[in-house]
Design a binder for these strands. Structure first.
Length: 269
DNA sequence: CTGGCCGAC
DNA sequence: GTCGGCCAG
C-alpha cells in the first residue's frame, strides 16, 4: 500500500471517529423530545410540564426546570419519581456547579457562601440515586434555593421522604417543586439570590388508574406540625405563583382535582 | 436523609 | 479550585 493511500485511510478513519463521537454526544444530550409546552420523555408517558412564567425552560436527564433570572433560581423543578428510581446507593457528594444550560447565566454557588442559608435542593439528591449522572445533576445551581437549615433538614426533609414513600407505594409520582418567588424577599450574595418566604410541592399520581393530586405550601421555617396541616389545593399554589401546573390534563379532570384540598387519597402513615 | 466547615493538595 | 474528613439537625 502506498503512503498516499495509507494517509487517505487514516483521514477517513478520523472523520468517521469524529462523526461517531458527535453523534454519541447528541444522543446523550437529547434524552427527551420536546414539544410545545410539554416534554415527552421517551422512557415514560407520565411526564407533565407546568407552564413557564419566565420563558426559560431547561431540560436535564433527571429533571426539567423553569429558571427565573431576576430571582437567580428555578421557579419550578419537575421530575417523575418512579418506584424503580429508589435505591440505596451512596454516591459521593459532588461540588455544586453553575448550570451552563441556563442561557441567562445560573447563579454561582458563591452567593450561598457564608450566607447562613443552605444550598437547598429542589429536586432532592435522594430522588436521583439511580445513576451517578442523575445524582450529580441535582447539584447544579439551577436546582438550588436558599433554605434555612432547620427547615431544610426538618419538615422539608420530612416531606421529601414522604414523597419517596408515596412513589414507592403508588409506583411513581410526578413532582413539581419550588419556592414562591413573589413579594418582598431577602436576597443573598452578589447576584442577589432571592430567599423565598414559602416553598411548595405539587404531586400528581397518574399511574394507579384514578388520577390524584396533592399540594403542599409551607412557610420558610421549621415546624413540628404534621405534614397534612400544610395541604392546600393546586389552585391556591397556582394563584400564588402564576404557574399552571398540569395544562395537558383533560380540563374537566384538571379543574376538579386542582380545586380540591382533600388528602384522603394519600396515605400519611 | 438534609447539609456546612475546614485544612491539605 | 477540589477533595476528603468530620460535624450537626
Amino acid at each position: 500500500m502506498s503512503k498516499k493511500s495509507i494517509f487517505s485511510l487514516l483521514a477517513i478513519l478520523i472523520v468517521l471517529g469524529v462523526y461517531t463521537y458527535e453523534h454519541f454526544l447528541k444522543e446523550e444530550e437529547q434524552v427527551e423530545i420536546i414539544t410545545e409546552g410539554k416534554a415527552v420523555k421517551n422512557n415514560t408517558n407520565e411526564y407533565f410540564l407546568p407552564t413557564s412564567t419566565t420563558g426559560q425552560i431547561v431540560h436535564h436527564e433527571g429533571f426539567s426546570l423553569s429558571y427565573s433570572e431576576p430571582h437567580e433560581q428555578a421557579e419550578w423543578v419537575a421530575y417523575e419519581l418512579k418506584k424503580g428510581h429508589l435505591t440505596n446507593t451512596n454516591f459521593k457528594r459532588p461540588y455544586f456547579e453553575i448550570d451552563k444550560a441556563v442561557k441567562t447565566g445560573a447563579a454561582s454557588w458563591r452567593n450561598y457562601k457564608n450566607s447562613g442559608f443552605d444550598r437547598g435542593h429542589l429536586c432532592p439528591a435522594g430522588d436521583r440515586k439511580y445513576s451517578q449522572n442523575a445524582h450529580d445533576e441535582t447539584f447544579l445551581t439551577s436546582n438550588i434555593s436558599p433554605q434555612v437549615h432547620d427547615f431544610n433538614s426538618g419538615i422539608w426533609n420530612t416531606l421529601e421522604q414522604k414523597v419517596r414513600y408515596w412513589a414507592s407505594k403508588y409506583d411513581g409520582v410526578f413532582v413539581v417543586t419550588g419556592g414562591v418567588l413573589k413579594g418582598q424577599m431577602k436576597t443573598i450574595g452578589n447576584e442577589k439570590v432571592s430567599v423565598p418566604n414559602q416553598f411548595y410541592k405539587v404531586l400528581i399520581d397518574n399511574n394507579t388508574g384514578k388520577t390524584k393530586m396533592i399540594a403542599f405550601l409551607m412557610p420558610h421555617e421549621n415546624s413540628s406540625k404534621p405534614l397534612y396541616e400544610f395541604v392546600v389545593s393546586v389552585d391556591e399554589v397556582e394563584a400564588l405563583t402564576g404557574i399552571d401546573f398540569f395544562p395537558e390534563l383533560d380540563d374537566t379532570i384538571e379543574n376538579k382535582l386542582e380545586a380540591s384540598s382533600s388528602y384522603k387519597d394519600w396515605s400519611f402513615n
